[in-house]
Amino acid sequence: MKSIFGMTLEEMQAEFSAQNLEKYRAKQVAEWLYKKFAKSFSDMTNLPKDLRAALGAKYRIEKPTLRTRLDSADGRTSKFLLVFPDGASVESVLMRQPYGNSICISTQAGCNMGCAFCASTLHGLARNLTAGEMLAEVLFIEEMLSKEGEKVDTMVLMGSGEPLMNYDNVVCFLRLLHEKYVLNMGYRNITLSTSGIVPAIDDLAEEGMPITLSISLHAPREELRTDLMPINRKYPLADVVAAGRRYAEKTGRRVTYEYILIRDLNDGEREARELAKLLKGQTASVNLIPVNPVPERGFERPTDESVASFCSILAHQRITATVRREMGSDIQAACGQLRSRHMSAEEKLQ
């Protein structure tokens, strides 16, 4: 049985046409799936009963179920552990910001990038998510917000997984999300975070989607970045920054460089000056992120003084830098932590 959730309108029309069904039926089904959050064909009351039964026999509407929900004490951050029918689990986060509702979604179940500071890699990569599964993450939160008279305003692909290692599915998902019959989300309201998959960055620049690119650097020199991010062996720091420069030139969009600050490792004056030199002349900004400690990793947060000093050095070198506002620290909102805890608990039961 084929999954229909995640198909474009054109794909549905082609499917229905091959079955001698009227073309307008595809538009009706798409509206039920993506606007009215239908869970089954029986919900689609403006379709004849026999058609609903026929579609139900041929297609499945594959959505995840909620396993765990955590809400921060201030009520501004909610984290969801969603499980797909095959058992693959992902995390999605809702952040209620002053400028609207922002969500963070996962693009893979797990991750195999091996970054030393991240919980997402602790259990490795289970599999890629399909375009429909990523869309299901978004619509799960959109449906919840719609009951409050609100909606999803912005999105970051910054949860578990490396989006550019799931390139085709991610691009299909972004185009689908942009469609009027789905959420009509503007590309400029979307940020994609990558550890620096150079060829895919160049491909993304050619897609004609002016999304914001966020590149994880976390170190200003090759050897230190390799220690923190093994992918640096394949795509060295210098090549990653050059790809970021090309992306900015091609799209006209400012690139954001993420830099996790880890006490006594990459948060010193030397690193700040090296980072400023590395990014000089770029259409870029730096997002400084005090590390969210993961017990299995052993890294410590920098002091407030070292964070302020690092930011000040960048500013004096005319590098735009901000310190990420922390949200949801009391519910382990860093990507991968909830999923890892859930999987570890399941392993103990086996």
Rank of each mutant, 00 (worst) to 15 (best):
M1E: 06
S3R: 10
I4S: 08
F5K: 07
A14F: 03
A14G: 09
E15A: 09
S17T: 05
Q19F: 04
E22K: 11
Y24E: 07
Y24W: 08
R25V: 05
A26S: 11
S40T: 14
N46W: 07
L47V: 13
A54E: 11
A54C: 09
G56K: 04
G56R: 00
Y59P: 09
E62Q: 10
T65F: 14
R69W: 00
A73G: 10
L81F: 01
G87T: 12
S92G: 05
S102C: 13
I105G: 08
S106Y: 10
S106A: 06
C118R: 01
A126F: 07
N128S: 12
E133R: 00
L135P: 04
V138F: 04
F140G: 04
G149N: 06
V152R: 02
T154M: 02
V156S: 11
L157Q: 08
G159R: 01
G161S: 08
P163S: 07
N169S: 13
F173Y: 11
L174F: 13
L174I: 15
R175V: 10
H178V: 11
H178G: 04
K180W: 06
L183V: 10
N184Y: 09
N189R: 15
N189Y: 00
S193H: 02
T194S: 14
V198Q: 05
P210C: 09
I215H: 04
R221Y: 14
R221E: 15
T226M: 09
L228V: 01
P236I: 05
L237W: 01
L237H: 09
Y247I: 06
A248Y: 10
E249L: 12
E249C: 02
T251Q: 04
V255C: 07
Y257V: 15
I262F: 09
L265F: 08
E271L: 00
A272P: 00
E274K: 07
E274N: 01
K277S: 15
Q282L: 13
Q282E: 15
A284E: 00
A284G: 15
I289S: 12
N292R: 02
P293E: 11
V307D: 05
V307F: 00
C311A: 15
Q317G: 05
Q317M: 08
M327N: 09
G328N: 11
S329C: 06
I331G: 12
I331M: 01
Q337E: 09
S344G: 14
E347I: 12
K348T: 01
L349M: 13
